[in-house]
């Protein structure tokens, strides 16, 4: 649905965005975060980390909605999300 007119006095609703941080050398490459990200923000990286695993890489940073499921499901405490500040 397309609004031709902006509702008067209403601001554009804010969508919460998250900023994903990956601690590469702590990752053990289980790819839980990649599989269970609801918006497919992550993908397997082609690089190796110190242990020889492929850590995840953020491919669609704008799609992250700060749900925090990757942080909850990571068994190695290697990924976390913080709320992105408005710019």
């Amino acid at each position: 649905m397309r609004f031709w007119e902006k509702p008067f006095g209403k601001e554009k609703p804010k969508t919460i965005c998250g900023e994903i941080h990956i601690i590469n050398d702590r990752c053990k490459g289980c790819s839980f975060c990649i599989e269970y990200c609801p918006r497919n923000v992550l993908e397997v990286s082609k690089d190796f980390n110190k242990k020889g695993y492929h850590p995840p890489i953020v491919v669609k940073p704008d799609m992250c909605t700060f749900c925090g499921l990757c942080e909850m499901i990571c068994p190695d405490f290697a990924i976390f999300v913080i709320e992105k500040e408005d710019e």
Partner: peptide
């Protein structure tokens, strides 16, 4: 804990 073990998730929870 091994790669793919669920214990880390349990600790986080």
């Amino acid at each position: 804990w091994c790669s793919g073990c669920g214990l880390g998730s349990a600790v986080t929870a």
